[in-house]
Simulated assay, not measured.
Amino acid sequence: MRWFGFGFNAFGQICVRETPMKEEESDVTQEVKVLRPTELRTSRVSACWSRTASADPDGDGGVRLAGFGVGVSRACGVYGQQSRGCKDAQISESHLTLAFSDRVECWDLQQEAKTASWSMELKDSDISGPPVKLPLVPGGYITPSPPFYHSLSPHLEAKSLALGAEHAILVTASGAVYTWGLGSHGQLGHGVLISEEEPRVVEALWGMPMSRVATGGWHSACISDGGDLYVWGWNESGQLGLPSRGLSKAKQQQISQQAEEPQDEQKHEDVFISIQAFPALLDVTPSCEITAVSCGSRHTAAVTSAGDLYTWGWGEYGQLGHQNVMSSDEPQRVEFFREQQQRVTDIVCGAWNTFAAVIKKDVACA
């Protein structure tokens, strides 16, 4: 499996350079914005705004970091002996969480400490169960800042959990979806703009088992067992794939600037959605099911059962993968991977960038 990255790269977190730039290569635009999907020397990517981390669960090479603070003369670095044997990793602006077969550790990236800031030993019963899948850990979940550990009620039987900027979304073993945290942009999916301190079931999805969940800055998404995609929350940049007033105004201004004569205002009132407080079914493509979804700060990416990648939302840094900086409130297929005869199998969004796992099209999915 190979990984590709595109979008925001101001700190080298996409790992496209391993040597300092020469003077003739110091084009800031090319350094900050990676418009063409670029292959990474990595696996299993975790991303935040300024860094990426990847762990090799089948090897002992440790966790590879890229981005802010990793090094001036090289773009990528290995997080030393501390991460040997790591099975999963989660990166934030301040901490790196490492999951091993017998423990979970949080390391402060702002200090050169020789010991973890926080650690939790796993019991024999935890080790014999399913492997830890961050941010979930036995009995609860890990957040990017202290206090790291938060407990969850056993009755939830959490199968997967995703953390947004200020909210969380969880799917249970039975496929029910729970959300909690900040709700000011409708990102909790309860039909109101209020916050919830404790997990609350998303009633609009009750009875429709879900398999995967994702969160962005202020929006959320989930995939049903049948491969349908549901989205809700803030739609300021079209990140829900629904009509966005902001993008419509930007298009009208661009058309007016290119036209010789000023354009008249639209005669009819268009319908725009700035906040979608209930889950909405998004028809990405009628011919395929959705198998994976991830959310950035203001963009979203989804993978279909045919191995195609679709993206939508804010695209100022090229994070939509269309090799331009255009934004879109409609899902559009990333043609790069189809042209390269590659099948996308997984997707991870950083705040302003995107990372896709691919295999050759003639290789069957496991």
Rank of each mutant, 00 (worst) to 15 (best):
P199V: 06
P199S: 02
P199A: 07
P199T: 10
R200E: 14
R200L: 09
V201C: 09
V201W: 01
V201T: 10
V202Y: 02
V202H: 03
E203I: 05
E203S: 14
A204E: 07
A204W: 01
A204D: 08
L205N: 03
L205W: 03
L205T: 00
L205F: 02
W206M: 02
W206I: 01
W206V: 06
G207K: 04
G207A: 01
M208I: 04
M208W: 04
M208N: 03
M208Y: 01
P209R: 00
P209A: 00
P209E: 01
M210E: 00
S211C: 08
S211H: 10
V213W: 00
V213L: 04
A214C: 08
A214M: 08
A214T: 08
A214N: 07
G216T: 04
G216A: 07
G216P: 04
G217S: 14
G217E: 13
G217D: 12
G217T: 02
G217P: 01
W218H: 15
W218D: 13
W218T: 13
W218E: 15
W218L: 15
H219D: 09
H219V: 01
H219Y: 14
H219E: 04
S220Q: 09
S220Y: 12
A221E: 05
A221C: 14
A221I: 06
C222W: 03
C222S: 09
I223Q: 00
I223C: 00
I223F: 03
D225Q: 13
D225A: 07
D225I: 00
G226N: 13
G226I: 03
G227P: 07
G227Q: 11
G227H: 04
D228V: 05
D228Q: 15
L229P: 04
Y230R: 03
Y230L: 09
Y230N: 04
V231N: 06
V231D: 06
G233V: 00
G233M: 08
G233T: 07
G233L: 10
G233D: 07
G233W: 13
N235S: 11
N235K: 08
E236G: 15
E236F: 08
E236V: 04
S237D: 12
G238Y: 03
G238H: 05
G238S: 11
G238A: 13
G238Q: 07
Q239K: 06
Q239A: 11
L240D: 05
G241F: 09
G241E: 09
G241M: 13
G241Y: 07
G241I: 10
L242C: 15
S244V: 07
S244H: 05
R245V: 05
R245A: 15
R245I: 03
R245K: 15
L247S: 13
L247K: 14
S248L: 09
S248P: 02
K249Q: 12
A250D: 10
A250W: 03
A250R: 12
A250G: 09
K251H: 10
K251F: 03
K251P: 00
K251S: 11
Q252P: 08
Q252K: 11
Q252M: 05
Q252A: 14
Q253R: 15
Q253T: 08
Q253C: 08
Q253V: 02
Q254A: 10
I255M: 09
I255F: 06
S256I: 01
Q257L: 14
Q258C: 11
Q258I: 12
Q258H: 09
A259I: 11
A259T: 14
E260N: 06
E261C: 10
